[in-house]
Design a protein around this nucleic acid. Structure first.
Length: 237
DNA sequence: CGCTTTTGACCAGCGC
DNA sequence: GCGCTGGTCAAAAGCG
């Protein structure tokens, strides 16, 4: 499946971001047309009719004029999505990613990337800058630059159901925020995927979820909706 | 009893 | 070198 190559180094980020701008296997979520083909470079746009509104991750080189929006759940949402993405009154999350090259590049570029993020009025923190330090822990931890992506959602619940089982391993109050950041790890053996969940300081209704790593297994099969979830997951990962 | 969550401590990186 | 900060560990507590 194409998803297996998404996070390889030196790939075109604009292509990559087209596929993983929100977590795969999210239940209750509509899927944009960009997931229906494996060759598209369109940004990926999800729509949740229940708890989520819109969530996007637009690659930096993306041509907005070429966007074709669909909702697989209800065609009536197409208009909502359009207005959301292009600055309409329902805009909830439009995150044009800066070239997150430092995650795959050299560490010494980090400060420059942060500056660039600020220039673009992006929240570099929410783009996961801090987590990519890839520190050596207890000197035995191997240095691996895990692929990461983040997205914003408007949701009452902190942890969205993405079909995988997660175990919380830490919580931290981050500077200048009133809401703690939670750290989760996939419960599957040999799966190193982690995610961080926090609420946006400026708007507590917004949840920032950052995934790091790539699952080496299928999502949990004991959920009621596992059939549909699994299919979506297989498509994406 | 086994799994998950909580939470204080610890560690490494960074800026000054 | 020191202090600050974010990320992780691990023991204790909670829960079904």
């Amino acid at each position: 499946m194409f998803s297996q190559s998404l996070f390889e180094d030196h790939q075109d980020m604009s292509t990559q971001l087209g596929f993983f701008s929100f977590p795969p296997n999210c239940n209750n979520m509509g899927i944009s047309s960009s997931t229906t083909t494996s060759s598209t470079t369109l940004p990926f746009i999800g729509y949740n009719q229940n708890t989520l509104k819109t969530l996007t991750m637009i690659p930096p080189s993306f041509d907005h004029n070429s966007l074709n929006i669909e909702s697989t759940h209800d065609p009536r949402h197409k208009e909502d999505l359009t207005t959301s993405i292009f600055g309409g009154p329902h805009l909830l999350s439009l995150q044009k990613s800066n070239p997150n090259t430092w995650a795959w590049g050299e560490v010494h570029e980090r400060s420059n990337i942060i500056k660039r993020s600020r220039e673009f009025d992006l929240d570099h923190h929410n783009l996961g800058v801090s987590s990519i330090k890839m520190k050596k822990f207890k000197s035995s931890r191997r240095k691996v630059r895990e692929p990461r992506f983040c997205f914003k959602t408007m949701s009452d619940v902190d942890v969205l159901d993405d079909g995988y089982k997660w175990r919380k391993y830490g919580q931290k109050v981050v500077k200048n925020t009133q809401h703690p950041r939670s750290y989760y790890r996939c419960t599957q053996d040999n799966c190193r995927v982690k995610k961080r969940v926090e609420r946006l300081a400026e708007d507590p209704r917004m949840v920032i979820t950052t995934y790091e790593g790539r699952h080496v297994h299928s999502p949990s099969q004991d959920e009621e909706d596992s059939q549909a979830s699994s299919q979506l997951n297989n498509l994406l990962w």
